[in-house]
Design a protein around this nucleic acid. Structure first.
Lengths: 188, 188, 188, 188
DNA sequence: GATTAAGCGAGACGGTACGTCCTGTCTTACA
DNA sequence: TGTAAGACAGGACGTACCGTCTCGCTTAATC
């Protein structure tokens, strides 16, 4: 369907491209995520893709950011241990089971080859994600459940680092027990 | 010198290929690691490569395993905290600074797209690496510095997980302070 | 200059390919007439060649037909013997000395291995060539110099067959005497 | 089966190679006549082939010469016209219908690309064949049926040329009428 | 009878070309 | 002016053969 006009880019084409990229990745893997395949699946000309995205990983990042995948907001029950466990469980599910997680893993993989993508991924996703990861801890500090002056950045790393390690490196399952063990940190 | 015959492949060609793959990756990055470039740099026919390796990532894994990259044996001074800190420092340096670490990062990235490679990488490297990572802890258990019955696997994850997370995901520097904070674990 | 678009192929690329094929054959022989060499010499992508020609012999046939190689129109002086001799001389020169003849010999050779090419070569060149070969005879019939009802097709074969035989099979020179002997046919 | 020894080449291997080449050509055409296919079909090592034949066309020529294909000896009834017609009929059948003719056409085709092969083909087959083609004419001269001093070489060309032309170039059928027309030559 | 050297089947080697796929650029006609 | 369509130059893919080589076996003449 044509949407060419003189009033800016076609939102229709944009969404079709993002959807096609997402679908192709989830269905067929990164190897078959080609610009040509996206264009064909989206019913869009290659030139339209190149006009708006510098590379296929930028498409994927856009698709990832557009998705509601960002809804990993931690709960706030006032119980630090419980809130952290619940949040880590959500993070683990995102990383290992969701479609958005598959896209995130692919983007992370590519970012290891492509510093430009790494920068974008950090700026446009990881920063916000880490802010969300910090929330339960900040609240705990505010409540006095954690000592003021605690280095929350390092604490976040020690909580989510093992999850990413399992999800991205060893591939082992992330069980409730694992999360419990990982989050037994401030009890020191 | 040719060594082609029915009784075995050419060791010369094999080593030239592994060296070329390693060099190309470190010098020019994964994007320019093509089978053709490896063949040319190694002075080898493409067919020889395809005869012995299913894909270029298999070459890279072979190169990685052949390298002295395996020399991450932890020290044994009898001081758990010091041994762990020293080992984590070596792991961090491997991950972020060494040529072998660059190869490892590329392999990890590809393994996120390729389950077959993930399986090989885990079986032929990660298992042994994790065994090395456990060593200081096992010795501590033997010495009575850690309680018998401690789940060392999870402990390993909690120690190295944050390092891999920084090295592979956030890209932040891994400082001595970071290692100190991460390894203040059994003091609980 | 690019001319690729939905409304037609690039005439520039087409001509460059035909010229390159012709040149490569005449300069280096059929053995070195590879698609890659044609593409390189023509400054054209291999895919462009495969898009428009099924095989390199089709390129060569196109080049042959495009050339002015078709200018073997026989003279018409009203003297049957002289016209035939002149025409056979031109045919012999074409077969043995011209660049176009080299292409024709190569195409004939390949057509012996490839029935599809044989069909095309006959339909798109030989038929027209034989029509030209018939012309002096048809004129002679019209003039009454040859009896009406003469089987001109067989007569053409008897005139040009020995020439092709020498040019393609025995390799012997085609002299004026030879042509004179061959064309002393209707004097019976 | 091994036949290695220090007293010369294996006749068994030689015949297997010739047979395999012949079979492959007749069954699958020249395109699939590769040294590797011949070696495999003959149960022979490639090296054995390269030891004894410079190229696959030399194998084919050997196969052709070894075959009883040479038995195109013309009859001798004392009737020039009949003898020539019978011989031309046999030549036509050889060229267009026999397996040996298929090999000959392939060799002729290749000889148009390969002067070395052309020389061999002429020296080792065509010369003898033309001698056989001359025989009826020489006998006729001896009998006085043809004038002494007739240029028999040109006469041979005028008789067989049209047959080769049809068989190799136009692909038209060679009928009895065609042969009758072609051989009505000395009646002038 | 043991030695030895040539021919052999096997098959790995460096290399070239194949025909395909995808990249990123371009041109055109349409809306 | 943005778009769908698609041809373009370029480059890597994985495959098929080329002609060369090395290997270990078999065999028959020589020691």
């Amino acid at each position: 369907m044509h949407r060419g006009n003189r009033h800016g880019r076609s939102e229709e084409a944009r969404l079709a491209v993002l959807q096609a990229a997402d679908d192709l990745l989830v269905e067929h893997g990164f190897a078959r995520l080609t610009v040509e395949a996206i264009a064909q699946k989206a019913g869009v000309a290659k030139q339209t893709i190149y006009r708006w995205w510098p590379s296929k990983t930028d498409i994927l990042l856009d698709a990832f950011l557009t998705d509601a995948a960002e809804e990993l907001a931690p709960p706030d029950t006032g119980d630090l241990a419980a809130d952290v466990r619940a949040h880590l469980t959500a993070v683990a599910r995102f990383l290992t089971e969701s479609d958005a997680g598959a896209v995130f893993r692919a983007l992370t993989a590519e970012s290891l080859h492509d510093p430009r993508l790494a920068t974008r991924l950090r700026a446009e996703h990881l920063t916000a994600q880490r802010a969300r990861d910090r929330l339960p801890l900040e609240r705990a500090v505010a409540r006095g459940d954690l000592p003021a002056g605690t280095d929350l950045d390092i604490l976040v790393d020690r909580l989510v680092g093992p999850l990413y390690y399992r999800a991205l490196v060893t591939g082992e399952e992330i069980t409730a027990d694992y999360i419990a063990a990982v989050s037994s940190l401030w009890s020191c």
